[in-house]
Lab assay of single mutants.
Amino acid sequence: TETYETTDETEARKIAEELKRRGLTFRIERHGTTIRIESD
């Protein structure tokens, strides 16, 4: 499991693209301005 936290929408998108490219599944949670991406 890898966890990323960012407040930057663009960075979050880049992380999501990278995880997809590596064939990982992940979920995105939003907590206020923080975007949390957690891979399975």
Rank of each mutant, 00 (worst) to 15 (best):
I35N: 00
E18H: 08
A16T: 13
E38M: 15
T7F: 06
T1C: 14
D8R: 03
E5R: 03
K14A: 11
T25E: 13
E18I: 08
R21D: 04
R30Q: 08
E17F: 08
R13F: 10
I28M: 06
R22G: 02
T3V: 15
K14M: 12
L24N: 03
I28Y: 05
E17M: 10
G32F: 02
R36M: 06
K14C: 15
E17H: 08
E38Y: 15
L24F: 07
T25F: 10
G23P: 00
E29I: 14
I15V: 05
G23Y: 02
T1F: 13
I28H: 02
T7N: 10
G23S: 02
I28R: 02
F26E: 15
A12P: 00
I35A: 00
E38I: 15
I37G: 00
T1M: 11
I28C: 15
H31D: 12
E2P: 05
A16L: 13
R30I: 14
E9F: 07
G32S: 02
F26K: 08
D40V: 14
T3E: 05
Y4E: 01
E17N: 09
E2R: 11
T7H: 07
D40A: 11
E38W: 14
R36E: 02
E2T: 12
E18K: 06
G32C: 10
E17T: 08
G32W: 02
T6E: 01
I15K: 04
T34K: 08
S39D: 02
R21T: 07
E5V: 12
L19D: 00
E5S: 07
I15S: 01
T33S: 12
I37R: 00
E9K: 05
R21V: 05
E38G: 03
K20A: 11
A16F: 07
L19Y: 04
R27N: 09
T3F: 13
E9C: 14
E9W: 14
S39F: 14
D40N: 13
R36I: 10
D40P: 15
D40K: 11
T1W: 13
K20T: 13
T34N: 05
R21C: 08
A16I: 15
G32V: 01
I35Y: 07
G32A: 03
T33M: 11
K14S: 08
I15R: 03
F26N: 06
E29W: 12
Y4R: 02
T25S: 13
S39K: 05
K20D: 05
E18V: 06
T34S: 06
A16Y: 07
R13V: 09
I37V: 04
L19F: 08
R22H: 05
A12S: 03
F26Y: 11
R21A: 10
R21W: 04
R21K: 11
E11A: 07
L24Q: 05
I28V: 11
T1V: 12
E11Y: 07
D40M: 14
L19Q: 01
I15W: 08
E18D: 13
E5C: 15
R30G: 04
T3S: 10
E9S: 05
E2C: 15
A12K: 01
I28E: 06
G23A: 02
T7V: 06
T33G: 11
E17A: 12
R21S: 08
T34G: 04
G23F: 02
T10V: 12
I28W: 08
F26V: 15
E17D: 11
T6D: 01
I15E: 00
R30N: 05
A16W: 09
T6V: 10
E5W: 13
Y4S: 01
T6I: 05
I35M: 02
E2G: 07
T3K: 09
E17I: 08
T10Y: 10
T34A: 05
E11D: 05
R30F: 13
K14H: 09
Y4H: 03
K14R: 12
F26D: 15
A12G: 03
R36H: 07
R22I: 03
R36N: 02
R27P: 09
L19P: 00
I15G: 00
T25P: 08
T3C: 15
I37C: 00
R36Y: 09
I28P: 02
L19E: 00
E2A: 09
Y4C: 04
